[in-house]
Design a binder for these strands. Structure first.
Lengths: 232, 232
DNA sequence: TGCTGTTCGTTGCAAAAACAACGGCGCTCT
DNA sequence: AGAGCGCCGTTGTTTTTGCAACGAACAGCA
């Protein structure tokens, strides 16, 4: 639970007043086991979730079997902002689902209560709203980024762009100094769904990239070699 | 200028105190002629724009000639929220450009000033922030919606989904009652860029749809006939 | 050990999309 | 009137993608 004060959602809020604030927000924690849905697309407006442990996958099913993975929230991250707010009245159907990627513990906040002023007891409410605003803006950038990936003209470009991103954010230089190592939170099928390409096409392209000496990989561990970024 | 009080950005704010607020925000209006850039991708963090007259196209160029059109802000709408906020310090490079689609008049707000508390003179600042939050959430939903379009499996699906959307939002029943008429703000090339498909593929598909009796069209005026929605 | 389920690479084939080039139509400007 | 230009449809060709199916490697488990 030490995660709370550290979270951007509660930045600038005295940890002593957190319990009162959480109470005011109708916060509750729930456990979800792997592959269970936190909230489902089509259901009425969900809540704001903060992952305490585990991880959550945000995805959008379309009505013939496909799914698109929109993102992943690891422990300490939030998901589901922008709904109920973005939905006009506050209660339209959610366009996405959230699914526990592992057994998870999640703090759920009632979004309406987040937005509406509460009694003066919650002096930090205004600060909270700013924090949510910042979060939303960040999410927004994230979506823009995803659109950036999706609009790449081909599978190869998508993969390279994705790996480059990961490398910039969390890459470590390889032991032999020949490249950058990144680990991705997806398996092949999930990655394909995330990039919206066919799994086999993805495998094909990864193979080509390996043969051309641009990358090396094993499972979800990828190594970008010199030239991979330039090949974009 | 009557547009101000009506705008969601200023909802709940006494129109009498608007001038003071605007002054506090470093607001200024500027004119842009057709095809001139309001702010460019890569430049440092832009501002929040409110279209007073004309229209603005938000697009993202990638570094080999392609562009993706992310949206369009007509008179009365805002654009460029989420930057400078989403950008960590408040001054990273913007990932998108805004281009005047017509001769336009635009109110520009300094985003930092929007976020930072100002002197007590601006009692409406808090309300403004909430309004921005709502706007951002809405934009967020819009982006989600766009991802929804982009992830459709083919050109046909993209086109139909796009037209259906437009029809739901602003469609009028056709004079002969045989369908719904929508006018779109794009020409063919722009529409192709918006949906991220080839222009010729778009034309081909439109032709097929016409031949199959699902739609009729001329220029940027489309008519969705019965069955078009079901064909999705 | 043997069974089973999952993940991943591979490949042939069919469908779809991108590319490129051309022609028509309507507009504006001189 | 004629030239220039923007917008749109059309079509042939090449390239890419999606689909389906198979097999290998591996992990969990009785």
């Amino acid at each position: 639970m030490r995660i709370f004060p550290a979270n951007p959602l509660f930045q600038g809020i005295d940890s002593g007043s957190l319990p009162a604030l959480l109470d005011c927000l109708g916060a509750r924690t729930e456990r979800f086991e792997r592959n269970s849905v936190v909230f489902a697309a089509g259901a009425s407006a969900p809540e704001l979730g903060l992952v305490l442990s585990g991880a959550v996958r945000v995805e959008r099913p379309d009505f013939w079997g496909r799914r698109t993975i929109l993102g992943r929230a690891e422990a300490g991250e939030t998901f589901g902002e922008s709904f109920s707010l973005g939905l006009s009245g506050g209660s339209g159907p959610a366009p996405v689902s959230a699914v526990a990627a592992q057994d998870s513990e999640i703090l759920l906040l009632n979004y309406n209560k987040v937005m509406l002023s509460c009694t003066s007891a919650c002096s930090f409410h205004t600060r909270l709203i700013r924090n949510v605003l910042a979060l939303l803006a960040r999410k927004n950038m994230g979506l823009l980024h995803q659109i950036d990936l999706l609009t790449r003209p081909g599978t190869r470009e998508k993969v390279l762009a994705y790996l480059s991103d990961r490398a910039e954010q969390g890459g470590k230089t390889a032991p032999d100094g020949r490249g950058v190592v990144v680990e991705i939170p997806f398996n092949r099928e999930e990655l394909a769904d995330f990039l919206v390409v066919d799994r086999s096409a993805l495998s094909r392209e990864l193979g080509k990239l390996r043969d051309e000496g641009l990358i090396r990989f094993e499972r979800n561990r990828f190594e970008l070699l010199r030239g991979a970024a330039e090949a974009l």
